[in-house]
Design a protein around this nucleic acid. Structure first.
Lengths: 196, 196
DNA sequence: ACCTGAACACCGTTCAAGT
DNA sequence: ACCTGAACACCGTTCAAGT
């Protein structure tokens, strides 16, 4: 039986855990610092000893999201030839968004105004981006395509999967059965490798 | 000199105008019904005679946004051959997002939970989508490409431009001069027609 | 038919004070 | 070093009352 000591002891991780739960339930805008504090059993102002404010807590959640996305992309890396790997990378990106829509929105949305203020978040985001870039560049190399600006194909592939993920989680693509939706995702994520 | 009569007379349009101004300044989450009421010179609760709540007001703003986007797409329709028109349509879509980022986010974001609750908004959204679909289908026809599910290429093209627009306005594509950014937009929006 | 005023249940954040 | 309590300036929304 915890006797509610004056000092929590590990409040920071407790706040993050509670906030992550609230995030998937209600989204970042409805997530409140006060409710996260209540879940951890501390006063409304206790979080300010561990986070500069709400945005800093959200940035910490986003960093965890980017790390999770990076792991998901790493899992499908080098599971086939370069074209198959690129397709699987795109599919994993979309699957991540569908599995954790609120976290995905937070990671890329405007709640965190400037990632450079939160180095941990910025670094984690760059880690995920580097996996995408690597898959695109490996694919281009395998097809002996030489480009002067590798950023263009990387952003093209990223736009394709990011756009599909966004449209899906924001319910812009409706009136489809689960089966048709899956084929659609395969077709769109495969477009970059199958060509126009 | 208006003598602040008890009845405003045209409060609904006045609220929409004020809210649209606030939207581009601070974004939908920070836009408050109370501030829009203050701008119109009425009490905090007056908006409830004209809108069911904040979401209904946002939905009305989003409907205007979709109408504006539709006009922008119509302006570039049939300005060249089918491939050029499709490319211009994509470019116009991204340009709209860059010109009105907060409105774009509102139109496609989670603030409006279910467009079918707001028929005006749903209809306006479908109008814009139909312009995109038309451009894609005209392009496919011009290249004599026959597909059984025209939705797949339509969603592919949409994902590409929607993803690029989202990444740009959410500041995910950084460290670029204006010139390189413009070339990037041209390359990505052109990818669907130039092929992989 | 349209608008106001007071009230309720919330927020994020600050600051002096407590252990 | 970490946490609390009271306070400030906000929200969205409801409801009885005013014109």
């Amino acid at each position: 039986m915890a006797k509610k000591p004056y000092h929590h002891g590990s409040l920071r991780p407790a706040l993050l855990a509670g906030a992550m739960e609230l995030l998937e339930q209600k989204g970042a805008p409805s997530l409140s610092l006060r409710e996260a504090a209540r879940m951890a059993g501390v006063s409304q102002t206790a979080p300010y000893r561990h986070f500069a404010g709400k945005e800093a807590l959200l940035a910490a959640l986003a960093a965890r999201g980017f790390e999770e996305l990076t792991r998901a992309l790493d899992e499908v890396a080098a599971t086939g030839n370069a074209a198959e790997t690129l397709h699987a990378t795109g599919r994993a990106y979309v699957d991540f968004a569908l599995a954790r829509p609120q976290l995905f929105r937070l990671m890329f949305g405007p709640e965190i105004r400037d990632k450079s203020v939160f180095p941990e978040t910025l670094e984690a985001a760059q880690g995920a981006y580097s996996r995408l870039t690597a898959a695109v560049e490996a694919y281009l190399a395998s097809r002996r395509i030489h480009v002067k600006t590798p950023r263009v194909p990387a952003v093209t592939a990223w736009s394709l999967v990011h756009g599909l993920a966004s449209l899906l989680i924001d319910n812009q693509i409706t009136d489809m059965e689960e089966d048709g939706k899956n084929r659609l995702i395969d077709a769109v994520t495969g477009f970059f490798v199958t060509g126009g």
